[in-house]
Write a protein that binds this DNA or RNA. Structure first.
Ligand code: FES
Ligand code: FES
Lengths: 131, 131
DNA sequence: ATTATATACGATTATATTTGTCGTATATAG
DNA sequence: CTATATACGACAAATATAATCGTATATAAT
């Protein structure tokens, strides 16, 4: 439990690779072959990051991706939520209803744990974890 | 991603129920029917907690479980690890080898994120999240 | 002693989630 | 015009989680 997904893992790899190669445009294939990541998944992952301006995309031959200045300022929470949606250890944290309709006795603990995690991730940037 | 399991959820419910009924022995069936939790799963979950002395078990008819004083002092990290094993957002945090044999460029970030989470969970007790 | 009821524990099945693949459309450099 | 790149949705495979089943053991009550 409490695992990150491959998508997040691949996104981290890609971002770090782009940061280390800021002078050139890097294609999905480049990263895919360099790290042994399935091309299509990596493509879709980078598309999500591009739509949030974490990276910039360029179409056509000689096209590819570039790192943006926004990366360093992005919090872990934003990064995770762009890729995987709301950060929540249980769905009830964001949903209206509770999973134990009649007699839920864990709302408080669940919320406290979740608040702690979100607070942690909101105060850590991608720059922080790269050093 | 970053979800807790039902086992942990059930364990939290059970622990809080036991704490609110410290004067009596509570059986698995009692908790199971009160919160709509599958009996066998709850049973095995409580067995794990019992073997770590988080709760105390009593066999035979009129038997059941009781909360122990250890609960309040138990950290979230210990609680999670009793039920689900090592807290790690990626398996490579504890394993010897790395998932990207040749060219891993995310060891540092993965470790930093994981250290942060473990630090958070090591400094939060079950008592902290219950208030 | 016998019975009923509780915990203890391993093996198996069902379900849900995650991961990966496939097919098609669009943009653009050469 | 063509080759190569991103963009995007639908589907299939693989994996992890959740739940069930079967059996053993302890013990209170009769
Ligand atoms: S189960 Fe989340 S609030 Fe009740
Ligand atoms: S993938 Fe975890 S250290 Fe390389």
């Amino acid at each position: 439990m409490l695992k990150i997904t491959k998508r997040v893992e691949y996104a981290l790899i890609a971002i770090r690779h782009l940061q280390e190669n800021q002078d050139v445009l890097v294609s999905v294939s480049d990263i895919s072959t360099a790290y042994g990541i399935p091309k299509e998944i990596l493509a879709k992952t980078l598309q999500k990051l591009a739509s949030s301006n974490i990276v910039k995309s360029y179409k056509g031959p000689t096209g590819g991706y570039k790192a943006t200045k926004k990366i360093a300022k992005t919090t872990l929470n934003d990064f995770f939520e762009i890729l995987e949606g709301p950060t929540a250890i249980m769905d009830c944290y964001f949903q209206d209803g509770c999973d134990h309709l009649n007699s839920c006795n864990i709302r408080t603990p669940i919320n406290k744990i979740n608040d702690s995690i979100r607070n942690l991730f909101n105060n850590l940037t991608l720059a922080d974890i790269s050093q």
